[in-house]
């Protein structure tokens, strides 16, 4: 069964249909990529899946459960983690703190227990830390562990945001333009990490990305969207060759 099913999803902002009847299924263990020109509605689809936006119509089914009525703060606990296009880290905290916040959906202590820092809380803190250290090892972030986000280079922040998402032990990770703003070398690393997430961690990845070489390299399937509507679905090569997709990209270049 598909891990994520998006059915006929739509939303409009003051008359503009940002997403207009988009449907797709993401199979467990695959890397599924959304591509499309600027303003196509890709990030909006992510925000709908994260339940940050209320859809105008359609359903989102994750792991067999309809999550369309769930509040946004339930989504992480169900196993969906994400990154943001414009990195949304907690700037005044350290990398370690950020990753620990990533484990919020796995918390098992109540505030009044924390107030007294009961032995139970200490045990739980150690366990969270252990889990976070695994992510730090996986993404090679040990050198930055105690650094404040505000002082980190852009490329590292991108990785930290992924690390924070991984800390929540997700089944599905949504990556919104993981390679944007990265150097060629950093993009290379990103490709490896995405492959590792898929192969070593057994994660399912739903990604938005403009860099077609990265997309071709890591994606099992690609869905092209434009103006909120699905255009073509298939392998990266098939989608890139689709006349409708070519036209959509050309169309934006003319107006741009």
């Amino acid at each position: 069964m598909s891990l994520l099913q998006v059915k006929d999803l739509s939303i409009s902002f003051g008359g503009v249909k940002a997403v207009d009847g988009v449907s797709f299924d993401v199979e467990p263990g695959e890397v599924f990529t959304l591509v499309g020109p600027n303003g196509a509605g890709k990030s909006t689809i992510f925000n709908l899946i994260s339940r940050l936006y209320e859809p105008g119509g359609g359903r989102i089914i994750f792991d067999g459960e309809d999550i369309t009525g769930r509040p946004a703060h339930d989504v992480a606990g169900l196993g969906i983690a994400r990154t943001f296009q414009n990195i949304e880290l907690f700037d005044h905290s350290s990398v370690l703190q950020n990753l620990l916040i990533g484990r919020h959906c796995r918390r098992d202590t109540r505030w009044f227990e924390e107030l007294f820092f009961l032995p139970k809380v200490r045990r739980s803190e150690r366990e969270h830390r252990r889990q976070v250290e695994e992510v730090i090892d996986f993404l090679d972030l040990a050198a930055y562990r105690d650094k404040l986000i505000a002082g980190l280079p852009y490329g590292v922040r991108k990785v930290v945001e992924i690390a924070r998402a991984l800390s929540s032990e997700p089944k599905l990770i949504l990556l919104d333009e993981p390679a944007s703003g990265l150097s060629v070398e950093e993009t290379q690393n990103m490709a490896w990490w995405i492959e590792d997430m898929q192969k070593d961690l057994g994660l399912t990845v739903l990604m938005v990305e403009h860099d077609m070489s990265l997309v071709s390299r890591v994606s099992n399937r690609v869905l092209a969207v434009a103006e909120g509507r699905p255009l073509a679905m298939g392998t990266a090569a098939e989608v890139q060759a689709d006349p409708k997709v070519i036209e959509a990209y050309l169309g934006t270049e003319e107006t741009a």
């Binding site: 994260s50 940050l52 703060h73 992480a76 606990g77 880290l89 905290s93 916040i101 918390r107 924390e114």
Partner: peptide, 28 residues
Amino acid sequence: NLLRSASGRSFLAVRDSEVSARALGVNV
């Protein structure tokens, strides 16, 4: 004590980015 456990971290999360706090499971 609060600051070094989950509740305290959720406060900082709300302060620095409400959107990602929500996406990480914090009931803002």
